[in-house]
Design a binder for these strands. Structure first.
Lengths: 206, 206
DNA sequence: GAATTCTTTTCATCACGATTCAATAAATCG
DNA sequence: CGATTTATTGAATCGTGATGAAAAGAATTC
């Protein structure tokens, strides 16, 4: 009797468009027009789905973080039950592939705005703690099996490893001439070696 | 025969005002009006000194980084010639005092924009490398005197320590509930302990 | 105090982005 | 097809910020 609603589909398209716009122009430079252009619509159409533009922007950021985290969780689940392999995979998956990695670009943009946006600050803090939790599980698992000889509490090691990921993410996004994805990975692994007392060579897992 | 020029003084006042505005509203939210208000002037007066507003903003950012770095260098110089004390002081001075630390807030804001601003990216990369250099000097000094037993090349250790500083700066600015200045300091020192093979207790320097 | 140069404000203008609303297009069902 | 609901557009409006020009204000020298 009428045209069916398919708003959810459009809404997620708009969220994706907003994410691209933010990655391209920053959280404040992502004007309504840019989002609309990115989505192939007019600004009015965007407003039709998100009468409050801030709501769309927040959702774009929130969803971006969620997606980043969820992807890592899924990756971890698909891996064999090997602490060494898992630790290395975590380190690799936490780094941007290069300066053009839009997913991490988004996260970096948010980091700066956390200082003046309590909501963003809270989301980022949560994301950080969740990632720390992931590392902790792997570390504890390895320790329980006698594979890792943790030199520090797992919380300390995990916090430092996630911190390294974050920081090198910024360096890679900024295009550091000698710290690219692989270089940062090696640096993080080097730190993990000391903390776990393990070689962390892919094959020497047991 | 006429009123003397004292533009340099005003210009540096404006740079400081711009820094405060950026720390308060972000790199893109720092409108000309905000800067003027922060400086106690009108927007036109600001334009009188900086016809190109982007030039002021860039200078504010550049000067902010420079100042941050120079302050650390001076602090190091004033310290006794003790690698342990210097390393600890470095770690402490690289972290924001709290979420309200405007100097580090500024740096965090820039980190995000580096992805779309090559000039900022270049400045931040330089700042990072310079800080790494500072750490390297201290590490090598300690190693040469037999105080530190470096578990890795000094470049690797230094890069990781500066990275930790950066990342915890973001966490502190974001107001992480359990990672404040002191907490982050302990985490960084914990990592430095493993890398230097030294207790890093303030008194056990020799 | 008058002349001169530097500084600042006021005001007008311009461009751009957000927002609204009426009009139009599209999809579905009977 | 035509009624009905959903989706999208385009023009109009509004506010904000950047910018420029002219006028007013301030500091110095003679």
């Amino acid at each position: 009797m009428a045209r069916p609603k398919r708003q959810e589909e459009r809404r997620s398209q708009l969220v994706a468009a907003a994410q691209r716009a933010i990655a391209a122009h920053g959280p404040d430079g992502a004007r309504l027009n840019r989002v609309a252009e990115e989505a192939g619509l007019t600004s009015s159409a965007v407003l039709y789905y998100y009468p409050d533009i801030d709501e769309l922007m927040f959702e774009a950021n929130r969803a971006g973080m969620e997606r980043f985290y969820e992807a890592r969780v899924r990756m971890l689940e698909q891996l064999p039950d090997d602490p060494v392999a898992r630790l290395l995979a975590l380190a690799k998956s936490g780094l941007p592939s290069g300066p053009g990695d839009t997913e991490v670009r988004l996260l970096c943009e948010l980091g700066g705005s956390a200082g003046r946006n309590p909501l963003m600050a809270s989301l980022l803090t949560t994301l950080y703690d969740r990632q720390v939790g992931m590392y902790q599980v792997v570390l504890e698992q390895g320790a329980a099996r006698g594979i890792f000889a943790l030199a520090q509490p797992s919380l300390v090691i995990a916090r430092n490893l996630v911190a390294l990921e974050d920081a090198y993410g910024y360096r890679i996004i900024a295009g550091h001439p000698t710290i690219d994805h692989d270089g940062a990975y090696e640096l993080i692994v080097a730190s993990a070696r000391l903390a776990t007392g393990h070689d962390l060579t892919p094959s020497a897992s047991s």
